[in-house]
């Protein structure tokens, strides 16, 4: 799985960073998403999907690798 984020869409709701701090963080200045791990290990894939679903502005995308 490859994860990408779009900071032009992100509003810094922090849903992803709350759900999965291993993969997502937030910039301390504007709260926008910071991707920590673009290729998270398999055991986190379900949680990534969950984060995708929780994002209120669809700023997270995944592609199969």
């Amino acid at each position: 799985m490859h994860v990408s984020v779009d900071t032009t869409l992100c509003i810094g709701s922090g849903q992803c960073a709350l759900a999965l701090p291993e993969v997502f963080d937030q910039d301390e200045t504007d709260g926008l998403v910071v991707l920590l791990d673009a290729k998270p290990p398999r055991e986190l894939h379900d949680d990534v999907d969950e984060a995708v679903n929780r994002c209120p502005v669809q700023a997270i995308a995944t592609t199969a690798t």
Partner: peptide, 17 residues
């Protein structure tokens, strides 16, 4: 957007934790 970005940095998941 201008206001939200000013505020979102104060409400990050990390700060809330």
């Amino acid at each position: 957007t201008r206001l939200r970005q000013q505020l979102a940095g104060q409400f990050t998941a990390r700060r809330m934790r």
